[in-house]
Design a protein around this nucleic acid. Structure first.
Lengths: 144, 144
DNA sequence: TTTATTTAAGATAAATTTGTCCGAAATAAG
DNA sequence: CTTATTTCGGACAAATTTATCTTAAATAAA
């Protein structure tokens, strides 16, 4: 469904959010360990998330990553996915046709608009806050 | 959503079905043209669909691909996708965790089971017959 | 039987995604 | 100022997916 980059990015962002709610910066190394992701690859993804303004990065000792606490509630899963995978999950024909819409649909067009709309709604409605809180109180987990 | 291989496979199967309903075999070349897919790559996909028993292939002059007419109604979109992409779309954690279920869920587990169930139901409920008929009567298209 | 045609199969190549490595830049602390 | 730490950025490498090419095998028809 999502790319590996996106999977790592989502997990990392949730972890950073949990720590940020406790006013703690986290290092790349810690993130990669807690999220079970390759360090160097995770670095790249965090870089792009930082450029997208979803997370903040700080160099040097005591540096690391964090998320502005006020943002945690407004950031949606959709924003993270979009920052990493772009909008290719949300737009485009299910069979790869350039020209496919309600007036000139591919054979699966109608079937697809429904589930894609579901997916989109889900991503737009789930906040980073709720994901981070679930992890924080031990309801969910990020490893294994 | 689907791999390129799967997109080509679905389109090819629908096209073969339309022709088979008219009792006509179609060649690889014709399929690739009508479906706008790379010939050699399409050949590979058709090969695996033939091995899966979804389509029949015949060598030599007057050879080509066809689908047993009685099957067209029972073959579901799910079968085609499964034959090409396997079950990786239907199973597995949305964040790539090995261990992720209702008792020990990842942060997006509950959100995902819903839309995945939707997708699965959609694929299991749409028959090749209905897709082929839509194309045949000009309601849908496969090119561009 | 010979020939032309068509799919099968395996090797190879290109493109993309995933992942690694290393030096540069920033920066906190001694 | 120097040093240690941490992210940044670019080059590089491996793995996977997508795509091509060539030869073999099957087979219909002359």
């Amino acid at each position: 469904m999502f790319s590996k980059a996106c999977e790592y990015g989502i997990k990392a962002t949730i972890y950073i959010a949990v720590k940020s709610m406790r006013h703690t910066r986290v290092s790349l190394k810690e993130i990669a360990e807690e999220v079970n992701s390759p360090v160097a690859f995770t670095a790249k993804i965090l870089q792009s998330l930082a450029k997208s303004g979803i997370i903040d990065s700080h160099k040097g000792p005591t540096g690391g990553f964090e998320i502005e606490e006020s943002k945690i509630d407004t950031i949606k899963l959709h924003d993270i996915v979009h920052a990493i995978d772009g909008d290719n999950i949300f737009v485009g024909c299910g069979l790869g046709l350039k020209q496919c819409d309600a007036t000139q649909p591919c054979p699966v067009h109608d079937k697809f608009v429904g589930i894609r709309e579901n997916l989109k709604m889900m991503l737009q409605n789930t906040s980073l806050y709720e994901l981070a809180t679930g992890l924080d109180i031990g309801l969910t987990h990020l490893k294994r």
